[in-house]
Amino acid sequence: MTLDEHAARSRLRDVAPGFKLLYALPPIAMALWANSVPFSLLVFGLMGASIVLKGGVRPADYLRWLLLPAGFLVIGTAAVAVDMSAHPETFVVSAPLGGANIGVTATGVAMAAHLCFRALASVSCLYFVAFTTPVADLGRSMAAVGVPALFIEMTLLVYRFVFLLFGTASEIATAQRSRLGYAGTAASFRSLASLASNLFVFSARRSEELYVAMECRGYDGAIRVLAPSSGARQPSLAGIALVEAALLCVAIAAHSGRFF
């Protein structure tokens, strides 16, 4: 399932997008600023619990999606932890390599851990938005905060076309494969080239067709649509404010070194 499908069936889908952003975005800033592992874990846990318990995403699905950034994180932070120096005594573990030594230092490990947990916390916040808010709803809420209409229309059209192009590309590729288009290197290159050029022609045609179809329904330069069910759920602002305030207190305490 794609993230968007998860979002479409989320139990929090009907909550007005603004509130979800208000809930999930400030903790990112706090986690980045506090730079503390326990605080990052707190945010990570809170968002995970919100996604699974409130949003109704199966824990297994959530974990599977977490693996995606986790892979990047491990590789990225490993690079931070590893260091090189002429003096082997600075390292916790090390191995000689040519004239120097390569290994991990205590400070390197600490830094890597901080980085890793901050990133995880931020990712979990963004996932909260992604798992509960379909792209379309998000686009609409951007209008409320003053993003230009043109930009939003573009975003939503791109969103629709991404799936259309992706679908077409995979159909062409399947058709090519079924006629042995990818058996051997030369054939693969040829098939790929024709796939790309076909896709380009297809996009040009499709955009023209769409324009005509839109004109037939009275398009005059501005896309106006009506969102389903105007009664989005409005959770209590006080509740969100309370959570954010509590998080902020913990963040300040963590930043000023009261814990850890």
Binding site: L210, A213, D220
Partner: peptide, 20 residues
Amino acid sequence: DAQLFASSVYEDISFGLCNL
């Protein structure tokens, strides 16, 4: 596919009406 562009079914159906 040449005709549908909006991000949800409801919005797509609403398009022509909004233009009216």
